[in-house]
C-alpha cells in the first residue's frame, strides 16, 4: 500500500488533487481512497488530505499517520504544518517551491523533490491553483502512477478546455521537477503537525496564506486611511505620528483590498519569493 499526505490550503485544490490521484489509481486497476481533513469551507486556510493506493480493497477509514509520500501544494505551508512529520523512512517529500532540493532545509531519512508549481499554475492557468500543477512532478518523482492515468482522471474532474490547461500544467511540472535527492540535513527540528487546522478562532500568523504581498510606498501615500479602514484583518496599521500606514505582515492574508482601494496606487502587490 502507498500512503500519501497532501498539505495545502483552501482554494488550492488539495482535496481535488487527492481525488485525482485516487481516480488515476483506479484507472490503473488499483484500489484507492481519498480522505479530506478540513472543517468548514475556508479559502486560504491550511488543510490536509490523504490518499491510499493498494492492489486490494482499502479497509482503513482513518487518517494517514505515517505517509510514504508527502505532497506540499503551498510554498509557505512547510512553515506552518509539519510536512515531513512521521514520514516513513525512505519516503519522499514533494514541495512546491522555486528552490532546488539541495536548498530545502528539511532533515531526516527521506528524499526531497521540488517543483515551482505556483509559477507553472500562474503561467498556464492564470491563477495560483497548484493542485494539478504538482501532479506531473508526483508521477515523475514517485513512479507510483502513469502520466496517462493522471490525465484521464483530470479530464473527469475538468472537462473541456479547463482540462486541457490543467493537463498542460501537469506535463510542465513532469518536465521541470528537480530531485528526488536524499535530504541534505540529516536531522532537523520538525514542527508539530496540527491536524485540526480548520475551524474558528484567532490565528498567530497567516503570512503563508499570501501569494502576493502588499508593499507600501510611503512617498506616494496621501494619508487618506483607506487601506487602514478597509483591511479586514487589521494588518494595515496606522502610524498617527507620521500619518502613514505600516503593515503587520503576520496578519496579512494577501487579499489585496488595500492595493485595490488606494486612490494613488501607493500599495503594490508583489509575488512573495520563498
Amino acid at each position: 500500500m502507498i500512503e500519501i499526505r497532501l498539505h495545502g490550503r483552501g482554494g488550492q485544490g488539495a482535496v481535488t488533487a487527492s481525488r485525482i490521484l485516487a481516480t488515476a489509481a483506479y484507472e490503473e486497476g488499483q484500489y484507492s481512497q481519498a480522505i479530506p481533513m478540513y472543517g468548514t469551507e475556508r479559502r486560504g486556510a491550511p488543510l490536509t488530505a490523504f490518499v491510499r493506493i493498494d492492489n486490494q480493497r482499502v479497509r482503513e477509514r482513518m487518517l494517514v499517520h505515517e505517509p510514504d509520500i508527502s505532497i506540499v501544494l503551498d510554498p509557505l505551508i512547510a512553515k506552518q504544518q509539519g510536512v515531513v512529520e512521521s514520514l516513513k523512512a525512505g519516503g519522499i517529500v514533494l514541495l512546491n517551491t522555486a528552490m532546488a532540493p539541495e536548498e530545502v532545509k528539511l532533515g531526516g531519512d527521506f528524499k526531497v523533490a521540488t517543483v515551482d508549481a505556483t509559477t507553472i499554475a500562474l503561467e498556464v492557468l492564470g491563477r495560483p491553483i497548484t493542485n494539478t500543477a504538482i501532479l506531473g512532478a508526483f508521477v515523475k518523482v514517485t513512479g507510483a502512477l502513469k502520466l496517462e492515468s493522471i490525465e484521464k482522471a483530470i479530464k473527469k474532474y475538468f472537462p473541456g478546455r479547463l482540462g486541457d490547461m490543467n493537463i498542460a500544467a501537469v506535463r510542465r511540472s513532469y518536465e521541470e521537477v528537480k530531485g528526488p535527492i536524499q535530504a541534505v540535513v540529516k536531522s532537523g527540528v520538525q514542527e508539530k503537525m496540527d491536524l485540526n487546522v480548520g475551524g474558528y478562532g484567532v490565528l498567530k500568523d497567516v503570512s503563508s496564506w499570501r501569494v502576493f504581498t502588499p508593499e507600501v510606498d510611503v512617498d506616494k501615500c496621501i494619508s487618506c486611511k483607506a487601506c487602514w479602514i478597509f483591511c479586514p484583518e487589521t494588518a494595515i496599521q496606522w502610524d498617527e505620528a507620521k500619518k502613514k500606514p505600516y503593515i503587520e505582515y503576520n496578519k496579512c492574508k494577501g487579499c489585496g483590498v488595500c492595493a485595490n482601494e488606494c486612490p494613488v496606487k501607493a500599495i503594490e502587490m508583489v509575488r512573495v519569493e520563498v
Binding site: 486560504g44 475551524g199 478597509f230 479586514p232
Partner: peptide, 28 residues
C-alpha cells in the same frame, strides 16, 4: 474618517477567507 475610533476590538488575524466582507463588517 478622522472620527473613526483608532482602537480595534478585533483580535486578528482570524480564520475568515481572504478579502472577507463579513470580517470587515465585524471589525467596523
Amino acid at each position: 474618517r478622522a472620527q473613526i475610533p483608532m482602537e480595534e476590538m478585533g483580535i486578528t488575524p482570524g480564520s475568515a477567507c481572504q478579502g472577507c466582507g463579513a470580517a470587515l463588517a465585524a471589525r467596523l
